[in-house]
Amino acid sequence: MGSPNAGKSALFHRLTGTYVTVSNYPGTTVEVSRGRAVIGGREVEVIDTPGLYSLLAITEEEKVTRRLLLEEGVDLIVHVVDAKNLERSLHLTLQLIEAGMRVVLVLNMLDEAARLGLTIDTARLARELNIPVVGTVATTGEGLDLLRQVIAENVRVAG
């Protein structure tokens, strides 16, 4: 999950490999996409949620996402954020951690952030937040192998 336009859908598409609509219409990932991915030798269900900024649900999309979180028994949340807007996005990350979720933070669009002159120390960020942090470029696939590995390490065996 993640805020609108962070590249969730692109990443989802990369992870599952199944055909998924990659949409960039501001805030239009209205429907929830599901796909299967084989990560670390296990089959994992991946859910692409509508975009949201906060757990305090205001929009319809945010409500849908929160309901998903509460009702699906999610093992691991991959929180995708636009590395360019890290500070704004961390609000949700903190809320997720606070809520007791297992969270992996994905800093997407690292290339664009770098072009803007933002260097993000992922290791330091991981230590500060006490969760795994992975940097990716969903459009090129950079960092995806590492993300898969981190997901494999953090997804509990079902049950």
Partner: peptide, 17 residues
């Protein structure tokens, strides 16, 4: 967040960018 960002993010403007 500001404290975390201050620790983990460095904003340098690379010449090209």
């Amino acid at each position: 967040i500001a404290a975390i960002a201050a620790a983990a993010v460095t904003e340098t403007a690379p010449a090209g960018a």
